[in-house]
Simulated scan of single mutants.
Amino acid sequence: MDSSAARDRDAEGRARNARPRDGLGRPLPYGAEGVARQPEGVTRRPDETVREAQRLLAAGMPFHAHEVFEDAWKSGPAQEEPLWRGLAQLAVGLTHAARGNAKGAASLLERGTGSLARYAAREGVPTYGMDLDGLAGWARALAGRLPGPVDAATDAPRLTH
């Protein structure tokens, strides 16, 4: 095995974590059966992003949903970056909550809610059918239940109205 493969690097030397992961994104031992990773760098229309992220959230895979939101924030218009970043932060907050990391969850849920609030405060910004106020309420309620048991699928938010 060459040194770039041993370090999970691609041919250009960029980090590419090849370890399998579980549904909450936790690394598993090499060779273990993991959950299929989301492909990186996929450009989707906003409605496709929302639909794919909702599918992953409903399946109890918020870590993977965060990757879908991250693609949108990196490939979309700059003015929408706070929307997609905030949604990614909420998904990672749910990930941490389901993993039992209450402090990390609360921090990310708060940051994500703040990002969405700043985005929604701007005049005429698109929300693509998402209920940003409802998502903020969901995040506050989830944070208020911590520490406590969280099931990533059962406790996942509904993105759209």
Rank of each mutant, 00 (worst) to 15 (best):
F69S: 13
F63C: 00
A53V: 03
M130E: 09
G41H: 02
R45H: 12
G60T: 08
A53E: 00
R37Q: 14
G144P: 12
T113V: 08
G31I: 10
G129D: 08
V150A: 04
R55C: 01
A72Q: 13
P27E: 09
G93K: 02
P82H: 01
P62I: 10
A121V: 10
M61V: 10
E33T: 05
A105F: 08
L56T: 02
R44S: 08
A11Q: 09
V42P: 10
Y119W: 00
L159R: 07
A153W: 15
Q89D: 05
T49D: 02
A141F: 06
D133V: 13
A32D: 03
A58M: 12
D47F: 14
D2Y: 15
A139L: 03
E52R: 12
Y119Q: 01
V92P: 02
A102V: 03
L135E: 12
Q79N: 05
R45Q: 13
R118W: 00
G144R: 02
A53Q: 00
D71I: 09
Y128L: 08
T127F: 09
A120I: 01
L83G: 10
H96L: 06
A32Q: 03
G104R: 05
D131H: 07
R51N: 15
R140G: 10
L24A: 00
P39K: 14
P20Q: 05
P149Y: 12
G124K: 14
Q38F: 11
T160K: 03
G137Y: 08
R19A: 04
R45L: 15
R158C: 15
G100Y: 03
L28Y: 01
A59W: 11
D133S: 09
G13Q: 11
L108D: 03
R145A: 05
E52S: 14
Y128D: 14
L90A: 06
V42E: 14
L28W: 04
M61L: 11
R51T: 07
Q89I: 08
T113Q: 03
A18L: 12
Y128N: 11
E33C: 08
T127W: 10
S107K: 06
T43K: 15
S75K: 12
L109Y: 07
R7M: 10
Q38I: 06
G104D: 13
D22Q: 04
G134W: 10
E70H: 00
G86H: 00
G93S: 05
R37D: 12
D8V: 06
T43F: 15
R26W: 05
W84K: 09
P62Y: 01
E12I: 07
A139V: 06
G124R: 11
A32T: 04
G124A: 13
A143Y: 01
W84H: 11
A53T: 00
A152R: 13
A65M: 02
R145K: 04
T49E: 06
A136Q: 10
S107Y: 13
R122C: 06
R37V: 10
R145P: 04
G144W: 01
E52D: 13
P147H: 04
A78W: 11
